[in-house]
Amino acid sequence: MQQNIETTEKPELVIETRNLNIFYNDFRAVSNVNMSVKRHRITAIIGPSGCGKTTLLRSFNRMNELVPGSHAEGEVIFDGQNLYDPMVDPVEVRYRIGMVFQIANPFPKSIYENIAWGARIHGYRGRMDGLVESCLRQAALWDEVKDKLNQSGLALSGGQQQRLCIARALAVQPEVILMDEPASALDPIATLKIEELIQELKKNYTIVIVTHNMQQAARVSDYTAMMMLSDAQRAGTVIEYNETNIIFTRPQDKRTEDYVTGRFG
C-alpha cells in the first residue's frame, strides 16, 4: 500500500521520488517509493535493519550506482529535473546533494585540507582560510580544532571526526545533505552534539537522515518516512510518510505503530 501525501504545506519540495525501484542485479532492494523531501526541513527515514533505508538514501545522489550491478527505475526529481535522466552527470548531482556516512571517513589529510579539498576541486576562488573557518564553525568544531588545523583529521575523536565530515560536506555548499546514520557509531554525548548540529544546519540546508534510532528521528526530524519489507515482494518500501509527530503519535499503518512503540524491530 502506498501513501501519497498531498502536499498542502508551504515548504517547497526539493526532492520527489516517483515509483522509484532500486535493483542490485536482479534483486529488487527498494520497491515503488513515492516520497518527497522539503526545503530546509529534516526528513528522517526509519525502519528495521535490511529494509533498504540506506539504499533509498543513496539513490538520492546517485551514490548507489557505485555498487556494481545496481540500477534504478522510476524517477527522482530534484530541482525539476529527473536525476536519472541520461543527460544528468552524477558528479554534478553529488556536488549539489552532499553526503555524510555512517562511519566517519575523514581523508588522511590535515583538518584544514579535509575542508579545503572539496572547495578546491570545484574551483572555489574565495579566501580559503575564511571558508575553512566558517565550515568548521557551522559544524561546531572550530573551537576544538582551531589550534591544530595542520594535524591529521584522523587524530580527532570519533565524534569530532564525524563533525569534520559534516564540515567537509558543507565546504562544497550543497543544497541537500544526506546523512546515513551519522551518529550510530558514537557515544550519547557525541550523538547529542551531532543532533544539535543537524537542527542548526536546517536553517541553511535540507537534510535527509537515515536512522534506526527512533528517539533520534522523533527528536530531530520534521518529516518521517517509515520503511519496511513488503511481504509480497521481500523488497523494502515506504509504508507511511508524514509529519514526524503524526508518525509517532497517530500512525495510520498498524505496522508503523508496532514499530514506533517498540513492539518489534
Binding site: M63, V91, R94, R96, G98, M99, F101, P108, G118, I121
Partner: peptide
C-alpha cells in the same frame, strides 16, 4: 585503500580522476 575514502570523495562531487589522483594515490 578503504572504499570509504573513495565514497567520501565521490559524495562531494569529485570525479573519478580527482578521487584516484588526489585521494587514493596519496593514501
Amino acid at each position: 585503500v578503504p572504499r570509504s575514502l573513495r565514497e567520501a570523495a565521490y559524495g562531494m562531487g569529485a570525479t573519478r580522476l580527482e578521487t584516484a589522483l588526489q585521494v587514493v594515490l596519496p593514501a
